[in-house]
Design a protein around this nucleic acid. Structure first.
Length: 274
DNA sequence: CTGCCCCTGTAA
DNA sequence: TTACAGGGGCAG
């Protein structure tokens, strides 16, 4: 499931291919992708648009077009966005069933939004609308504004558990279930502890852990793209706790546990996460 | 704040 | 055959 690192690698890839391309034809196969009842209008408004730039904000991909049009893509759980080259399609490509949209480009290639669970979104907005939407998100963990002091300050007065604090996109934007759990393991912090109870030293540890996890995962996602040219998911990232309930912690040997927080599973080591 | 919903492939 | 996975939006 694409979190910030996978979206970053994907954005870099799209930024190499899309700028300058004109959208020649649009097929929205799953109307809810863009908005209920708006698929026709969106398709019409997209035709002829020229890509200016591609960037990432949290887990969203922003595709700036000309004439005050912006595409905001969110992959959610299973979304994949990729450019299919003009070369004759190889038969092995995934079933058409899961393809949500096809944007044919002027060089014969196509931007494909594939999404087996169909939870992803692709919104067509004005620049102002896109800016407003993205402004609701919190700090970018890879920006230089994200410092140990900033993380400490953000956590003050928060009674919610650390794990949920890290998942709250209005404070820190881009961490999902996997890397939140991994960062807490690296920082040796119990996901159940109230965020506001972190000491300054612990916040510093957590800050470092978040950056390490994200940077490793970005490197893994880039490598996956270079190798396969397609997937780029978290497969290459070696998770220490995520989906490893019952296995032994590589740091202390205790059994990794799973629990539910905010309706989602959290994996952690009760031995060394305090 | 909590919890339901969206959606469908996969695991039990 | 059913339960479950989960990010984000929104109702309560």
């Amino acid at each position: 499931m694409p979190e910030l690192p996978e979206v970053q690698a994907l954005t870099e890839r799209l930024a190499e291919k899309l700028p300058g391309r004109r959208i020649a034809a649009v097929k929205i196969r799953r109307p809810r992708l863009v908005a209920p009842d708006k698929a026709q209008a969106v398709a019409r408004r997209l035709r002829g648009a020229v890509v200016q730039a591609v960037s990432r904000r949290a887990k969203s991909i922003r595709i700036d077009l000309d004439r005050d049009r912006v595409l905001l893509a969110h992959m959610r759980m299973t979304g994949h966005l990729f450019v299919k080259s003009a070369a004759p399609a190889r038969r092995e490509s995934a079933s058409e069933r899961s393809i949500s949209a096809i944007l044919a480009l002027d060089d014969g290639s196509a931007l494909i939004f594939d999404d087996s669970r169909a939870l992803g979104t692709l919104r067509l907005l004005s620049y102002r609308e896109a800016d407003a939407k993205l402004a609701e998100l919190g700090i970018e963990p890879l920006s230089n504004q994200f410092t140990p002091s900033m993380l400490f300050a953000l956590s003050r007065g928060r009674s919610s558990p650390l794990k949920l604090f890290l998942l709250d996109q209005r404070r820190i934007a881009g961490l999902g279930n996997i890397y939140a759990a991994e960062a807490l393991w690296r920082a040796r912090l119990d996901p159940r502890r109230p965020a506001g109870a972190m000491s300054r030293a612990e916040a510093t540890r957590l800050h470092r852990a978040i950056l390490q996890v994200l940077e490793e995962a970005i490197a893994a996602a880039r490598a996956a793209y270079r190798r396969a040219g397609a997937a780029g998911d978290e497969a290459d990232f070696q998770a220490a706790v995520y989906q490893r309930a019952g296995e032994k912690c590589t740091r202390c040997g205790c059994r990794i546990q799973r629990l539910r927080q905010g309706g989602r599973s959290t994996f952690f080591c009760p031995g060394c996460q305090r």
